[in-house]
C-alpha cells in the first residue's frame, strides 16, 4: 500500500477529465442547459438566502460580502482551505457555516440541508468555468497526505480503494454506471437518482457504502481531507457547479 501511494504521488498524471465527459448525452445536455438544469433551482435559492438577514447580527451575507458575482468569483477554486489564522481545514460548506456562526451569530446549517446546499451551490457557481486551483503548502500538507492515504487504502467488505475504481477502471462499466475519474469539480450536483441536489460528501458516502465500508460523517475531518486530495487531482478542471449526474 505504501508503495502504491508513493508511486501514484510521483507518476505524472494525464490531463484530468471531468465526470461530465463520462456521462450520457442526455445528462450532458441537461447540465449544459442553464434553464433545464434542475441544480439551478438551488443556485436561485442560494441567491435569495444571500441577501436574507440571519442571526443576532441581523446581517445578511450580502451585508458584508456585497455582490457575490464579484466578491465570490474564484473562491471555490481554492477550497478546501485553511483559515488564515491557521485553524482547521474548511471546505466551502464549513466556511459558510463559520460565517453563519461567528459573523452572523446564527445557528450552523445542517450538512445536506436545503439552505446549506443552496448557499454552497450559489457561492461555487460564481466560479463556474474557472480552473480548480488548490494549493498544497506547509499549512495543509498533513491534510493532503491523510486524504491521499484514504484514497489508496483498501476498505470495506469489498476490500477496494478509490484508486481501484477511479484510476484503474475509469471509463469502464459498473452495473449501469460508467466509472469516472472521481473528481469533485461539479459539486454540489443535481443527481437524478436522488431527485435532488446533493453535496460532494453525500456522493463520497455513497462510494464508501458501495464497497460496504463504514461511512465517515458528512463534514467530518476525514472527508474534508479527502476532498482536498481530490481537489489536488482535479487541478485545472473547470468548476461546473451545479453539475448534473444520473
Amino acid at each position: 500500500m505504501l508503495t502504491l501511494s508513493a508511486v501514484a504521488a510521483e507518476a505524472p498524471r494525464p490531463q484530468p477529465k471531468s465526470g461530465i465527459e463520462y456521462a450520457g448525452g442526455d445528462v450532458r445536455a441537461l447540465q449544459a442547459d442553464d434553464f433545464g438544469n434542475p441544480g439551478m433551482l438551488w443556485v436561485a435559492r442560494g441567491e435569495k438566502l444571500w441577501s436574507a438577514p440571519a442571526g443576532r447580527s441581523g446581517k445578511s451575507c450580502a451585508g458584508c460580502h456585497r455582490d457575490a458575482p464579484t466578491t465570490m468569483k474564484g473562491v471555490a477554486t481554492r477550497y478546501p482551505r485553511r483559515d488564515v489564522g491557521g485553524g482547521e481545514l474548511l471546505n466551502l460548506e464549513g466556511r459558510i457555516n463559520q460565517c453563519r456562526e461567528q459573523r452572523q451569530g446564527a445557528d450552523v446549517l445542517r450538512y445536506e440541508s436545503e439552505e446549506l446546499l443552496a448557499l454552497t451551490a450559489y457561492v461555487a457557481h460564481q466560479s463556474r468555468g474557472m480552473p480548480v486551483n488548490v494549493e498544497i503548502n506547509d499549512a495543509n500538507r498533513v491534510n493532503f497526505e491523510r486524504g491521499r492515504d484514504t484514497y489508496y487504502r483498501r476498505q470495506g467488505q469489498m476490500n477496494l480503494a478509490c484508486t481501484h475504481c477511479h484510476e484503474q477502471n475509469a471509463g469502464r462499466k459498473l452495473l449501469a454506471d460508467t466509472i469516472s475519474e472521481g473528481h469533485g469539480n461539479a459539486y454540489p450536483v443535481y443527481r437524478l437518482e436522488w431527485q435532488s441536489a446533493g453535496s460532494l460528501h453525500r456522493r463520497l458516502r455513497a462510494c464508501f457504502f458501495g464497497v460496504r465500508a463504514e461511512q465517515p460523517a458528512a463534514g467530518s475531518a476525514e472527508l474534508v481531507d479527502l476532498e482536498l486530495y481530490l481537489a489536488s487531482r482535479a487541478r485545472g478542471l473547470q468548476v461546473e457547479t451545479p453539475g448534473v449526474r444520473r
Binding site: F35, G36, P38, M40, L41, W42, R45, Q195, S196
Partner: peptide, 9 residues
C-alpha cells in the same frame, strides 16, 4: 414558456 419548480413530488 418554461417553468421549473422545486418540489419533491
Amino acid at each position: 414558456i418554461r417553468i421549473a419548480i422545486q418540489h419533491s413530488m
